[in-house]
Amino acid sequence: MSAAAGHDAADSMRITLKVWRQEGPDRRGRMETYRLADVSPDMSFLEMLDVLNERLIAEGDDPVAFDHDCREGICGACSLVIDGQAHGPEALTTVCQLHMRRYSDGDTIHVEPWRANAFPVVKDLVVDRSAFDRIMAAGGFVATHAGAAQDANAILVPKPEADRAMDAAACIGCGACVAACPNASAMLFVAAKVAHLAQLPQGAPERERRALSMVHAMDAEGFGNCTNHFECMAACPKGISVENIARMNREFLRAALFERPTATAAEGG
């Protein structure tokens, strides 16, 4: 390990990482210990993992696989459980936006993947979240032709509804809600999508069909049931409220009672 970062040595921290290593989906995983002697407080958590991986590659070892893309908190790719918390200890923050200044010299940090049967481990810290894609394909969109962008005031949406829909639309689909839920339930994710679209004029016509088919798709993926712990809301980096789950319950109830059987186009329009 070299002091290649070249920052003030006085700031540098010694960090012990205990990282979940698992070679493949059907392999047994284990926690592996790595010591980093020269971590800058200015590094992001993922940059620290990059440094670890450079070292592992230089030493001829297998680097730690982890998901990341935008590294600016908007794509939902990064997905680490740090010391038992999805996305780590910072509220309303994805792990790519977590910085090492949150930690002190000598800290030991545990890093694990999202854990849920519906999110099987692909390798190390990477899990397969295609269950979310399949739920989205079941109705998380507007199937009608919405046409070209309309004049700004052609369809009026009251400000409070637009705000609530926007709050739900902030979901980046990272899956932290599932990771944090004691039951591995995906309710908050699905609720965010159902609530987002049901509250806007373009999404409202299909709200019943959407609520039924998205809940059905969620159940088929083997997520747990929601028992209202609300750990999801506490872990969500975008602050999605469980109010959306209550809304989805209402949408579902309404749909179960009033949705008429139709002979419309196949799922996915």
Partner: peptide, 27 residues
């Protein structure tokens, strides 16, 4: 519900921390 929820996460966390949603009552 309890059985299904246990089955939904067969391989559990090594370290687990609550974030403030759950309570003694809920757990």
């Amino acid at each position: 519900l309890t059985l299904e929820n246990l089955q939904a996460r067969r391989s559990g966390y090594v370290v687990r921390a609550r974030r403030g949603g759950s309570t003694t009552g809920s757990l």
